[in-house]
């Protein structure tokens, strides 16, 4: 791609990554969540691929696969935390520990330390979706080889 596109991509990719991390991190407070934030981060990876070519990212293929499996395993492990009651039981909500602050009912400004297992599941699913969709785009860019610019 041309130098204008490359310069603008260098400026805008950190912003997209920060917005995706914000959408994942505040998934239990504001609209969004793991899937949406992961899609935003994967779109940043796709922008890098389209602009800079897939050659530079080729070495990270195995890392993306590893992160995707890690996200899936973390999601299922967090679901198994509540196996004492039921699968997917939210054991951390309201317990006072990590992410366990009780929420006052009704309108409130939103506290990050709430939600129980929801923020951890948001991170797991966000990691999984970002790495999965990013590796799909990367594999498609690497297929056939050759014409990167």
């Amino acid at each position: 791609m041309s130098v204008v596109v490359r310069t603008i991509a260098r400026i805008i990719v950190p912003m997209i990554l920060a917005f995706g991390a914000y959408v994942i991190m505040h998934g239990h407070l504001t609209p969004g969540g793991g899937f949406q934030g992961g899609a935003v981060i994967a779109s940043a990876i796709a922008l890098l691929l389209v602009v800079f070519g897939s050659g530079r990212l080729a070495g990270h293929k195995n890392l993306l696969s590893l992160l995707e499996d890690l996200g899936a395993i973390a999601f299922v492990a967090l679901a198994f935390l509540g196996i004492g009651c039921t699968f997917f039981r939210n054991v951390l909500a309201g317990s006072g520990g990590l992410f366990g602050m009780p929420v006052p009912p009704g309108p409130n400004p939103g506290f990050l330390n709430t939600g129980g297992t929801l923020p951890l599941m948001n991170w797991a699913v966000g990691l999984k979706v970002a790495a999965g969709l990013g590796s799909v785009v990367l594999l498609l860019g690497l297929f056939g080889g050759g014409d990167d610019r």
Partner: peptide, 20 residues
């Protein structure tokens, strides 16, 4: 808000009530 501890009801439905 009380049971799942999340302001965003959509996320509490997606990850808690309808986790499957």
């Amino acid at each position: 808000q009380v049971e799942a501890g999340a302001n965003n009801v959509v996320t509490s439905v997606v990850f808690d009530y309808r986790g499957f």
